[in-house]
Design a binder for these strands. Structure first.
Length: 477
RNA sequence: GCACGAGUGGCAGAGUAGCUAUGCAACGGACUGCAGAUCCGUGGACCCGGGUGCAAAUCCCGGCUUGUGCUCCA
């Protein structure tokens, strides 16, 4: 079975053919750490985390890079407001990012390059661009000259030069005084007072926003690499700028074989963004919901679709996730020697799961398969299936819901949770049992008010009573 | 305005021509004193208008709606 991925540049799903057989070089644009991470960052990281996990699962060796833009206007502005060094701001927010990602069960990338650690490579790249005539030194920095390769314009967004010229309207005037054309973009910004800067052939300054990704991907993945990713909001101008820079610098195209873009998170139908002030930080979200439930919500839609974030969605995810975890936990205590491949429903579910993931990483469909296996196991658990099959089911979930989708807590923490439940249960048992007995007597004599009164009382203690054909069963809320 | 997407049942979301998505919700039944859980079952959709096909949610044209981009943004 072949893996097909949607490539933004060709606007089609294409079979993945890597430059080196069996290996994937993947670069995804990371964050600018000027404030705590929000759930949009979480979604992006989860999307690429799952892509990486799946690629590895089907046998690829993946080199996954995601960067930190650790020097930028906003970071400097926050630092100046606080009267601290810009790196203090960046480091603090990078730590926050890792904390959030760890909670969301995002595996670490292989490298996290930072702009401040890539200055020499950036300077080299700019020098080559100037030398090749694609860039020029303006009054306040170095700029890429769009007109030197107009054919590259609109590769990802389909916009033409004239359109952008027309659309930019009055906003052109206040950008980049040293530009020859408003569509040119900065490669190097000359130092201003109170700003960090580095020496360069064009004087003290710092890199423009776009050049870092070209330099970092070149440094870590080489002159051509397989996949470049990021949010759809980076399509223009950031990724188009990268195409200009990398391809003009290296003199060949394409540098990137596949462009992959994840959809945004919307809140109440509008894009979540800082300027609208409607964003949730990861911490905000985790105050309300379990991190793995948040992860579940994020992958319960294909990565390219926008997600409209709302409470109902979280509630539903929470129900589904809880059911999955408890079915897994209960199955875990079964011991058996049957491989899941020998159980028909598991075998066929795994095939459909793989087909879903191979179709542009369709996690939504993959989750459907998880749900159907969870339902089957629930059924078996309730009707006393043999341990062999349950154990095989637990193994299946561990592999597909756990290792690949990253949705399961560790076995240890599940067992811990179950043990806690058990001890809480035995603690309260001496109170519950006599009441249940009394209720049974009341029910036997058809004294329903009394029976309900006792049930209410148990509810107050956090005990849920359910009458089954074989008598009442109870559990803790 | 221009560019690129998207419009499928109450919700989320599959599905590039002929057959069923799936999950949740709803409804009916079984079981129940009631409730809950569970089991069995049911109904329900393809934005609008044209076109091409024996056949269209699926392809083509037009329209409408909506998202994103055109400015820092995952």
């Amino acid at each position: 079975m072949t893996l097909r991925v949607y490539d933004t540049r060709s606007r089609s799903k294409r079979e993945l053919e890597t430059l080196d057989e069996g290996k994937v070089g993947l670069y995804a644009c990371g964050i600018t750490p000027y404030s705590p991470s929000h759930i949009g960052h979480g979604r992006q990281a989860i999307a690429f985390d799952i892509i990486v996990r799946w690629l590895r699962h089907i046998g690829y060796e993946v080199n996954y890079i995601t960067n930190f833009t650790d020097v930028d206007d906003k970071i400097i502005s926050v630092a100046n407001d606080e009267g601290v060094d810009f790196l203090e701001v960046a480091n603090r927010n990078i730590a926050d990012y890792f904390e959030g990602m760890d909670a969301l069960n995002v595996l670490r990338a292989d490298h996290y390059p930072r702009v401040t650690e890539t200055i020499p490579e950036i300077v080299d790249m700019i020098s080559i661009l100037i030398q090749k005539g694609h860039a020029y030194v303006g009054g306040d920095g170095v700029y890429f000259e769009i007109d030197t390769s107009p054919e590259k314009y609109g590769q990802l967004t389909g916009q033409s030069l004239d359109m952008v010229r027309a659309g930019a309207g009055g906003r052109v005037a206040d950008t980049g005084s040293g530009k020859r054309d408003h569509r040119d973009f900065a490669l190097w910004k000359s130092a201003k007072p109170d700003e960090p800067s580095w020496p360069s052939p064009w004087g003290e300054g710092r890199p423009g926003w776009h050049i870092e990704c070209s330099a970092m991907s070149l440094k870590l993945l080489g002159e051509r690499f397989d996949i470049h990713g990021g949010g759809t909001d980076l399509l223009f101008p950031h990724h188009e700028a990268e195409i200009f820079q990398s391809e003009c610098c290296l003199g060949h195209d394409p540098v990137v074989q596949y462009w992959i873009h994840n959809g945004m998170i919307n809140v109440d139908g509008e894009k979540m963004s800082k300027s609208l002030g409607n964003f949730w930080t990861i911490k905000d979200a985790l105050e309300q919901v379990d991190p793995l439930v948040l992860r579940y919500t994020m992958i319960n839609a294909p990565y390219r679709q926008p997600i409209d974030f709302n409470q109902k969605m979280l509630d539903e995810s929470s129900i589904h996730h809880k059911r999955m975890v408890s079915v897994y936990g209960e199955s875990l205590s079964s011991f058996g020697t049957t491989d899941w491949g020998d159980v028909e429903i598991l075998e066929s579910a795994s095939k459909r799961f793989a087909a879903a993931m191979n179709d542009d990483f369709n996690t939504r469909n993959a989750v459907v398969e998880i749900q159907s296996v969870v339902n089957s196991l629930r059924n078996l658990l309730d009707n006393g299936a043999d341990a062999d099959i349950l154990a095989a089911g637990a193994g299946w979930l561990s592999e597909f819901a756990g290792e690949i989708l990253g949705l399961l807590p560790t076995d240890e923490s599940i067992q811990e949770m179950m043990a806690e439940d058990e001890s809480a249960r035995s603690e309260i048992e001496s109170i519950v049992e006599p009441l249940l007995k009394e209720r049974a007597e009341a029910r036997a004599s058809k004294d329903w008010p009394r029976a309900d009164e006792i049930r209410d009382k148990l509810n107050e203690l956090g005990v849920v009573v359910e009458d089954s054909p074989s008598g009442p069963v109870w559990r803790l809320q």
